[in-house]
């Protein structure tokens, strides 16, 4: 090992991709910043090729490439096909305010540690979170803030556990529609809205067909900064340190920026003349109680008793 460590570092090129964010988007800018910090920190010894959303394929395809080491670094929105436990991140109502969420995902936070272990088991290195915010329910022609009122709305959820279970527990009728057909499905009334995303996606893609956004905060959505473990091992310790530190800086910057960005998207939504609704504290408490009771027992089967015990302990349940 000494011989290797002493050898002059070879020039390396890393491939860095994101599955959600074109050039110029917040996520696109984030991976560019990450790349630039790596180049600067290694004095050009490590070069980084950047690939934006869809350049290397769909979300699942790019994640495959990361798993195989074809992509070395990634800002990805977690896929659960390789390990169901990654849906830990989607456990509903673990918290509903920013400070708690950031504490859990930040350096030394309990979710940060738990995800680090899970990623390690599938050959990835967890380098930090890149939060977007709390999701909600976007509908057209009215909205609901209670379980009873929600029954009038049929909303699209991604076909991934526990999204369906969560939104059903909130009272909505759920429906499966492919993302590519969602716009016209809303337009023609196949569904009345969608219930999985932070408001950014609704203002960006559905601003002209949806009218109401209720910030129900069932999940805190975050991208993950990650590396393929084998690619990682090919870097020198000094290079690893630079990549990790650069990721930490990108994460910290997003922790500062995310809440403001989310509020900016809320403002754009209102500017379209749409209604934006925060449930009252009682309404939120009622949703939290109902969803935890309905969904968490099922989560235990997916996550295993140990992880679920950690969730319960950390959230005081």
């Amino acid at each position: 090992a000494t011989g290797l460590a002493a050898a002059p570092a070879r020039a390396v090129t890393l491939k860095l991709a994101t599955d959600s964010g074109a050039k110029g988007s917040d996520a696109g800018n984030a991976i560019e910043a990450w790349a630039e910090k790596i180049r600067a920190g290694t004095k050009g010894e490590v070069d980084v090729q950047v690939f934006y959303q869809n350049e290397l394929g769909g979300q699942q395809e790019v994640f495959d490439l990361l798993m195989a080491g074809d992509v070395d670094l990634m800002l990805n929105w977690p896929m659960t096909s390789y390990d169901q436990r990654i849906s830990l991140i989607y456990t509903p109502y673990m918290f509903t305010d920013w400070p708690e969420a950031l504490k859990a995902y930040g350096p030394g936070g309990w979710l940060n540690a738990a995800l680090g272990d899970i990623y390690g088991d599938i050959g990835l290195r967890f380098l930090g979170a890149w939060p977007e915010g709390f999701n909600g329910v976007a509908t057209r022609g009215g909205h609901a803030t209670t379980i009873e009122a929600a029954r009038a709305f049929k909303v699209r959820v991604p076909p991934v556990s526990p999204f369906t279970e969560t939104v059903a527990a909130m009272g909505y009728q759920t429906a499966t529609v492919d993302w590519g057909e969602l716009y016209s499905a809303i337009q023609t009334g196949v569904v009345d809205g969608e219930a999985a995303n932070v408001i950014f996606y609704d203002v960006t893609y559905f601003g002209d067909v949806l009218t109401d956004y209720v910030h129900t905060r069932q999940q805190f959505l975050t991208g993950i900064l990650t590396a393929n473990e084998e690619s990682w091992q090919e870097l020198t310790p000094a290079q690893q340190a630079v990549v990790a530190e650069a990721a930490r800086q990108v994460m910290v910057a997003q922790f500062d920026a995310a809440k403001a960005a989310d509020e900016g998207h809320v403002a754009s939504w209102k500017k379209l003349g749409h209604s934006y609704v925060e449930p009252t504290a009682e309404e939120l408490a009622a949703l939290t109680k109902a969803v935890r009771a309905a969904v968490w027992p099922g989560m235990e089967k997916v996550l295993g008793p140990e992880l679920m015990a950690r969730v319960r302990a950390q959230t005081g349940n």
């Binding site: 394929g57 769909g58 699942q60 395809e61 495959d64 490439l65 195989a68 080491g69 074809d70 492919d178 590519g180 057909e181």
Partner: peptide, 18 residues
């Protein structure tokens, strides 16, 4: 090319709802 993912990518492109 990385043969671990070459055909997997092809598979993914066929495995879609649309």
């Amino acid at each position: 090319a990385n043969f671990n993912t070459l055909m997997l990518q092809g598979f993914r492109s066929l495995d879609g709802v649309i």
